[in-house]
């Protein structure tokens, strides 16, 4: 019983730390993205509130929180609110299976820096990715707006297509590692001394595309396509309700999926111990944020696909590629004796 109590407290602390850190980082990622966009677009970005505009996320949060809440006429009110939860919760739950570093000992207890070391970590990632679409669909349906409706339909078709591709792309890594636990995938990469991106470059590219599609980033941001749908599925939301959607999609999802990409393809926290005791964590965050940076960079450079093109690419090009990659990997693993 005492053991359970300690485990519970440890987990609660971990959850608290994680949620706090992740939400804070997401808020500051908005600042970073705006600064980056400013730099890319030959302008300054936020620079008025606080030094270097560093208090801008805070100001935005206050602004969003103090806005008048408006529920559109004819809206399905419970679903309207449920949509926000359905958008936020899965993207937060994604973090529960991300290991930020190796085990360490504190007060004589072994502590793993992840919330739940389940042996089906990757499966949870898929599950949460699929659940996240309900946020979009609910918001589109409940808003009683045609723009929102069309936007959510687009997102649904994209998610369906890319979940399949994502699954098949990741299967290659799973075959190599022989496990679907996130921790063990990282450990097997450290053990073999090779990051899986070297064995699975195709899978990584596919994963990257899926990541962009799932998080609704350019060039796959069709569900919000501001020129056609005036930000699409969240058009009827205001104030913090509106803020929750991009927070979940554009920031939480991108960070989480980048972290998972690092786990799958870049050896997780592995790296030379040049930063002392915190070296694994720093490596992990460094890799993750390099990927996040890459996503932001794409966002501010590329045009956007058409809805039908995106699904077409997924079904006609990416899925066969993923399958071929899987088959080749399976054969090679089988011939070389596997694991």
């Amino acid at each position: 019983m005492a053991e359970f109590g300690i485990a519970l407290i440890a987990t609660l602390i971990k959850v608290g730390v994680l949620v706090g850190v992740v939400l804070g980082v997401s808020a500051y990622l908005t600042w970073f993205e705006r600064k980056l966009a400013g730099h890319i677009q030959a302008r300054l970005g936020p620079n008025v509130v606080g030094p270097f505009g560093l208090l801008q996320p805070l100001a935005d949060a206050i602004k969003l929180a103090t806005k008048e809440p408006i529920v559109p006429k004819g809206a399905d009110v419970p679903v309207f609110y449920l949509a926000i939860a359905m958008a936020l919760v899965p993207s937060l739950l994604l973090f529960s299976v991300i290991p930020f570093g190796p085990e360490f000992t504190l007060f004589g207890k072994e502590i793993k820096p992840l919330i739940s070391d389940v042996n089906i970590g990757i499966l949870i990632v898929f599950a949460m990715g699929s659940l996240a679409v309900y946020g979009t669909i609910f918001s589109g349906w409940a808003s009683n707006s045609k723009y929102a409706f069309i936007g959510s339909l687009r997102k649904a078709s994209v998610i369906i297509a890319y979940e399949v591709v994502l699954g098949f792309a990741v299967l290659g890594v799973i075959l190599l590692a022989g496990t679907i636990s996130t921790v063990e995938i990282v450990e097997s990469q450290i053990k073999s001394g090779v990051w899986y991106i070297l064995y699975q470059p195709v899978a990584f590219v596919l994963f990257l595309f899926c990541m962009l599609a799932e998080s609704g980033r350019v060039p796959f941001d069709i569900q919000e396509a501001e020129a056609e749908l005036v930000t699409g599925y969240n058009v009827e939301y205001g104030g913090m309700k509106f803020g929750a959607f991009p927070l979940a999609e554009w920031y939480l999802n991108v960070i989480a999926l980048s972290a998972i990409a690092v786990i799958l393809f870049f050896g997780g926290w592995s790296g030379p111990a040049i930063f002392g005791a915190f070296s694994p964590y720093i490596w992990f965050l460094l890799k993750t944020f390099s990927l996040v940076f890459f996503v932001l960079w794409l966002h501010w450079t590329l045009p956007r696909f058409q809805a039908k093109d995106i699904t077409e690419i997924a079904w006609k090009i990416m899925l066969p590629l993923a399958l071929a990659n899987l088959i080749v990997t399976a054969v090679v693993v089988y011939v070389l004796g596997g694991k």
């Binding site: 966009a37 030959a42 450079t301 956007r304």
Partner: peptide, 12 residues
């Protein structure tokens, strides 16, 4: 370009 999602061309 902005309509087609290329946000940066607009500012350039």
């Amino acid at each position: 370009a902005l309509d087609l999602g290329a946000l940066t061309v607009f500012l350039y």
